[in-house]
Simulated scan of single mutants.
Amino acid sequence: MQTNRSDVADLIYFLAIARHRSFSRAAVEMGVSASALSHALKGLESRLGVRLLNRTTKSVTLTTAGEALATSVGQPFEAIDNALETLNRFRDTPSGRIRINAAVEAANLLIAPVIPAFMARYPDVEIDLVASNRLIDVTDAGFDAGIRYGGTVPEDMIARRLSADIRWVIAASPDYLARSGTPEHPDDLMNHRCISNRLGDDRIYRWELERNGEALQITVPGSVTVDQAQTGLVAVLGGAGLMYLPEPLVAPYVQDGRLRLVLTDWAPAGEGFYIYYSSRRQLPTGLRLLIDFIREVRPLGL
C-alpha cells in the first residue's frame, strides 16, 4: 500500500489522539477542531481497512491494530521532528510552538511576567501554557515540559531550576486579625478560621512550620478548602481567615497594607520552581530560549 500526503497528515493526528486518549485534548494540541480530527481518523481507518480506535462517549482507547501502528510510526515521526528542530537553531528568528504545563503559581509568578519581553525578543515562538496543579505525565499528555516546585518533579525527568527557594508564610487581613486576634504560636491556629490547600494529588496539605530546628506539620481547621492559592487569596483579602501561601504571591498586598503576616519566625523556605522535560526527546529551540530567558531575567530570583 502506497502512502499519500493525506495518510501522513492523518497519522500525525492519530499519534496525537493516541497520546492524549482524547479527541478534544488532541485537537487543542493540533490546533484543529475535534470534529476535524474525527473526520480525519475515519478517513485513515477507511483507507487502511482496519479500526484503530475504540470510541465511546466517555473514552478513547487504541485497538490492537492501533497500538501496533502507534508503536511503529511514533519513532520515525519523532526523528523527523528532531531533525526539523535541529534546523530551527540555524534560523535568524527561531520559531515554533512550545506547550508547557505549569503549576498555577508558576504560571502567574514566573511565566506571565516574562512573556512580554520574551515575545518582543522572539516574536515567532508561540507559547501554549496550561496552568494546573493537577499532577500529570507531561510527556504522555503532549507537553514539551512541566514546571513544579522542586520537591514534586518526577525523578525520571531532566530538571533545571528557574527560581530561588520560596518562603512560605501565613497571611490574613488586618480586619480578620482585629476581630479574631493574632496567633502567637502554631498551636493557636486551632482556634482560627483557616483556608486549607488541596494538593495536585487531592491530598489536603498539612501546613509545614519550622523554627530553630523544630519542625511541625499541622492539620488546620479548614473552614474552606481550595485547590488554587489565588482563589484562597481573594477570600483572605476579604477577611475570611488565615492561609498558608508562597510569599511572592502575597508580597504586594503586605506592602500596601491589605494583608499582614503572622508567625513569621515559623516561616520555612521550600524548593523553588523547576522546569522538567523528558530525556528521550530533543529540547525544542523555543523551550531552550524560554528557559535561558527566565534564568536571565530572574523574576523570582535564582
Rank of each mutant, 00 (worst) to 15 (best):
residue 232 G to A: 12
residue 30 M to Q: 15
residue 60 V to M: 12
residue 94 P to Q: 08
residue 86 T to D: 11
residue 161 R to V: 03
residue 31 G to Q: 03
residue 289 L to E: 09
residue 27 A to C: 07
residue 158 I to Q: 13
residue 32 V to L: 15
residue 11 L to Q: 11
residue 67 E to V: 03
residue 15 L to Q: 15
residue 122 Y to P: 03
residue 282 Q to T: 08
residue 205 Y to C: 14
residue 118 F to Q: 14
residue 2 Q to C: 02
residue 269 A to Q: 10
residue 292 D to P: 08
residue 172 A to S: 08
residue 130 V to Q: 10
residue 125 V to W: 01
residue 209 L to H: 01
residue 126 E to F: 11
residue 182 T to A: 10
residue 29 E to H: 06
residue 114 V to W: 00
residue 80 I to E: 11
residue 234 V to P: 00
residue 93 T to M: 00
residue 282 Q to E: 13
residue 77 F to I: 10
residue 234 V to T: 10
residue 84 L to G: 12
residue 87 L to Y: 04
residue 47 R to Q: 12
residue 258 R to Y: 02
residue 57 T to Q: 15
residue 145 A to M: 06
residue 267 A to C: 03
residue 25 R to G: 00
residue 201 D to C: 02
residue 224 V to Q: 07
residue 24 S to M: 04
residue 102 A to S: 11
residue 83 A to M: 06
residue 201 D to V: 06
residue 240 A to K: 05
residue 26 A to V: 03
residue 103 A to V: 03
residue 113 P to I: 07
residue 190 M to A: 14
residue 202 D to I: 00
residue 37 L to N: 15
residue 17 I to N: 04
residue 28 V to L: 09
residue 22 S to L: 09
residue 7 D to T: 07
residue 255 Q to A: 12
residue 59 S to P: 06
residue 299 P to E: 09
residue 178 A to T: 13
residue 298 R to D: 09
residue 45 E to D: 11
residue 14 F to L: 13
residue 297 V to Q: 12
residue 194 C to T: 06
residue 294 I to W: 05
residue 247 E to H: 12
residue 248 P to Q: 12
residue 194 C to D: 04
residue 265 D to I: 14
residue 62 L to P: 06
residue 238 G to P: 05
residue 245 L to H: 01
residue 233 L to H: 00
residue 90 F to S: 14
residue 69 L to I: 11
residue 31 G to T: 05
residue 283 L to N: 00
residue 76 P to D: 05
residue 52 L to H: 06
residue 125 V to Q: 02
residue 124 D to T: 14
residue 4 N to V: 02
residue 203 R to Y: 04
residue 185 H to C: 04
residue 291 I to R: 07
residue 297 V to M: 09
residue 205 Y to F: 13
residue 135 L to S: 07
residue 38 S to G: 07
residue 101 N to L: 09
residue 4 N to H: 08
residue 63 T to R: 04
residue 233 L to P: 00
residue 159 A to Q: 12
residue 115 I to L: 15
residue 38 S to P: 00
residue 166 I to Y: 08
residue 121 R to N: 08
residue 157 M to E: 14
residue 209 L to I: 03
